[in-house]
Design a protein around this nucleic acid. Structure first.
Lengths: 343, 343
DNA sequence: TTGTAGGCGTTATCAG
DNA sequence: CTGATAACGCCTACAA
């Protein structure tokens, strides 16, 4: 194993020609005689020559590598996004370094530094819940590194973004319940702070308004941890405090599954007695009984689009042409399953 | 933005000293006067100097980057492993490039080439179902690149490995059913080829033998796609063909969830009429009704150990000391939940 | 058509 | 204590 690594030099020496000529021959320059070209290419193949990427990086000041920072890998949504990014990057000759912030601002800053020092050609991020327009994001931009934010973004950062319209998505979900005959709809919402929890709540409210259903703040339950257990707990409270509720719009599928579990336990029939719709289209939603209606977020596509936006910016940077950041809004869709069927 | 990038040269020129001295000062060499050291360090800080990693890579022939190839990112088990690897790598100053084989040998080969050309310092892989000791694996080893295989390994490859003892794990799962009173136990197994499906089947058989339960090949059902739907289908067949079966050991949780779904549908009570145990401890298993008993694979730890083994080998390589590949076996444990409770 | 020379930024050796 | 010089491997003006 490990024969001498083939380099331009090695090839040149064996053929007794100059390194320059070897380089030109391999890069298909026209000013190389057919004969030398062939000799070079043959020998290169024989020695399994591949350009040393370290040297190429140094010369071109490009690493053909991008960085990705997300709150956590172990999450159905994020792993789908990663999938989209990796695939799209590879198609375009880029590799992806993935890092996690674990929802910690501190860690996120560290990861940004790592990537800057690594001199990646661009960075894609979904912010931790703690982050806003902090110095670390600024330093990415100040370093002239192309940046794309997706999903959990900050409105304060001037860069490209890939998002869904949470308000509209929630609106659609609630209208779906209404179209199925629900008249008294509760909402289990996410925590106070995150923008998407706020937007989904607003969408819920709007849908009620538009359909002349009075909004009742007592029917809104607020998660703190966004867990399965909270789902069960709120389901209990809803049914005890407001037995007339006939539909629930839940911030995310995991919590909705908790709701279903509780209703299963106490033998309340879904969708006959009460209809449930979740959000995010987790895998388990199609596997649980009854199958959960939900809102699909195009996570794979979000990854692909994020990379493509980044690529565009990277190309502009390379060509030294101006680039104006863009925001891409992706379509969501209501997935109708058993938990919202008509009786 | 983008002032002149700070380099050793820039610092040297500003301080009117040599590049060499700057380098030494920054690297804490002893043969630099306190005064120059301070001047250098101060200016470096002011200019926000960070070494150009491209140049460092070229000089040191190290990238402080490792490659990871797995069948797919969107998979609870693998995303946990990734998590472990990334975290452990970061602690040790390494970054991780992740690639997917999508269970395709063709693609896997391509990914290996990409990583070799990238000159990563080491590679961690879980093989696609199609792979064995193929040329691409050989070429990793021939290139002298440290390699660790985990989970889906090939016995033919001489490298470090991180595994669970599938046979024992399956044995334990089946004994768990037996301890709960099951006398007639079916097995829904994985496809014919993969080693872990074979081992789990053997564990099943052994547990029966040891407990004087006659093995009946008719009670073994073989998945081809390992899906939720197959679980439902086999549940149906089992109950129709062998209504006396009182326990099922299922190759993996996803399929087991399919089994549960079917029994829920036709109102067969789990665990009262029949007990089910899965494998892998997927997240959804604790969230479904009834909660699924299963075998926990320490996926996070598998990632951590994989990296640490790789690190060891990388260190040996750097020091040019011999390294003998090792295999680490990780402990699994039966997680007892509702689906195997006593009546 | 071929080759020389210089540089990307860092590090190591060796001489002053 | 400091610095000149070379080298890592590749690429590209510019000669020859």
């Amino acid at each position: 194993m490990v024969n001498q690594q083939a380099t331009l030099k090695v090839i040149a020496e064996q053929l007794k020609i100059s390194i320059t000529t070897v380089s030109k021959a391999l890069k298909g320059y026209s000013d190389v005689s057919e004969k030398t070209r062939k000799a070079v290419i043959d020998l290169a193949k024989e020695l399994q020559y591949t350009p040393n990427s370290f040297a190429v990086n140094l010369r071109t000041k490009e690493s053909k590598t991008i960085g990705l920072i997300i709150p956590e890998v172990v999450h159905h949504f994020f792993s789908n996004v990663i999938n989209g990014i990796i695939a799209e990057a590879e198609k375009n000759g880029y590799l992806v370094i993935t890092l996690q912030s674990n929802e910690s601002l501190e860690l996120e800053k560290k990861q940004v530094d790592l990537l800057i020092n690594k001199r990646v050609d661009g960075i894609i991020m979904s912010l931790s819940n703690q982050s806003n327009f902090d110095s670390h994001i600024k330093s990415i931009i100040n370093n002239g590194i192309p940046l794309v934010l997706f999903d959990k973004i900050s409105k304060l950062v001037n860069c490209s973004k890939v998002l869904i319209d949470d308000q509209k998505a929630a609106f659609d979900a609630v209208e779906h319940l209404i179209s199925k005959g629900c008249k008294k709809i509760a909402h289990i919402r996410g925590p106070i702070n995150p923008q998407n929890a706020i937007d989904r709540f607003l969408g819920y409210k709007k849908a009620l308004e538009k359909n002349n259903i009075p909004f009742d703040s007592k029917l809104v339950y607020t998660c703190t941890n966004v867990t399965f257990e909270e789902g069960k707990q709120f389901a209990k409270e809803i049914i005890e405090q407001h037995p007339e509720v006939d539909g629930i719009f839940v911030i995310t599928d995991l919590v909705a599954v908790g709701v279903l579990a509780y209703f299963n336990e106490i033998q309340i029939k879904v969708p006959q007695q009460i209809k449930i719709i979740g959000f995010s289209n987790w895998f388990m939603s199609q596997v649980i009984t009854p199958k959960l209606s939900t809102v699909d977020q195009p996570s794979l596509e979000m990854g692909e689009q994020s990379f493509n936006l980044l690529l565009e910016e990277m190309v502009h940077k390379k060509n030294k042409t101006a680039f104006v950041p863009r925001t891409v809004l992706l379509k969501t869709s209501v997935i109708e399953r058993d938990s919202t069927q008509n009786n």
